[in-house]
Design a protein around this nucleic acid. Structure first.
Lengths: 190, 190
DNA sequence: TCATGACCAGTCAGGTTCGACATGTCAGGA
DNA sequence: TCCTGACATGTCGAACCTGACTGGTCATGA
């Protein structure tokens, strides 16, 4: 019955771009920096992925490209159709809840490391989390959000902050545990 | 000076497979189920990725394939070289700390959803987190870990549990916040 | 004047991942 | 006996993603 030509994949990137453009028109360069700074904790994309995607999006009428400006800069604005597309994606499709986190994966293999290597791994996790917590707190403490978009971002930021704080607490806990394991077993109970 | 032929990429999958095989020999099928059940919260791979990778690994002498058994089942065992390879990966390479999490990404675009849609999104996050917390707690409460591998897995599990609990708490917080936003603004202070 | 570094846009090869398709075995129940 | 569902392995095309390379503008300061 159906001669399905193209089984569409997830296309998270394009919808993320549309979502960012829904806030305000931006150039590809700006988009790529925003991607890192704003949604970077949940998704990532280099400019080599973003530029071609913007061209595709423009070809489909989901965004509109302006004339090249100062340094060859091209501004992209979302169209009504594009806005409809993100909204439909958000409303009608379920997110893929599989998470990719290499650092966390490695923790499963702690036992393959030397005792020092294991401690080092967890310590690095701790450092990375601590740094990230500081950065997120700084972001969160900025001016209080004024627009709906900023309010959403504040809520999303809070998710990242809490997740990272949990990771930090975990790393401290894990370090203690590793030390206990290295220390002589079965100390006499009080 | 250097005519670098092949810039090696991350190859997380192969090392994850080696790590799982370091614990005990397994078939591809078992590996693919283990992948989901054990490290599934941090990485994912379908069998269509695992089978060819095992063949490559065998070709490089990092694992050894046994003769096909009962239902065509093939057991794979890690070799000394393979063990060296995972260990080197763990000790000498830094993890890529970029995380991919589509559900979290969507939260940045809460403002593009209808009020009901937004609440629904967060509610689903809450439900998913609650379910995941239950599952992880069940896993964590099993028998106390006996082998080094099990102890590592317990520590890794704890990371997942804490992260998920943080997500659950966040979802509750976010729901309240969304309700406040929908409610009439600026209630007179006490 | 020249060098640096941020800004800005792209292309391309090659590795990675996903979904669909294909094939077959074996145990248990209807 | 037939069916179902878990077991078990595999291929393939298309989409996705990364790193490296290319080419250019503009402001600042040495």
């Amino acid at each position: 019955m159906s001669s399905v030509v193209a089984p569409p994949r997830r296309q998270v990137l394009r919808h993320a771009l549309l979502g960012l453009l829904a806030e305000q028109p931006m150039s590809g360069y700006e988009l790529s920096r925003r991607f890192e700074a704003s949604v970077g904790s949940t998704w990532s994309a280099g400019h080599s992925q973003i530029y071609p995607e913007l061209v595709r999006l423009a070809g489909e009428g989901l965004v509109e490209a302006g004339e090249p400006g100062p340094r060859g800069r091209k501004m992209y604005a979302i169209t009504d159709e594009g806005l409809g597309e993100v909204r439909a994606w958000l409303a009608d499709t379920e997110p893929d809840r599989t998470v990719r986190d290499e650092a966390a994966l490695r923790t499963f293999f702690l036992w393959l490391m030397t005792p020092d290597g294991a401690r080092e791994h967890v310590q690095r996790e701790l450092d990375a989390a601590a740094e990230s917590v500081d950065a997120l707190k700084l972001l969160a403490a900025r001016r209080r959000p004024a627009t709906p978009a900023e309010r959403s971002q504040r809520i999303a930021l809070e998710a990242g902050l809490r997740a990272t704080q949990a990771r930090l607490a975990w790393a401290r806990w894990a370090l203690e545990r590793l030390d206990d394991q290295t220390a002589p077993g079965d100390p006499a109970p009080g």
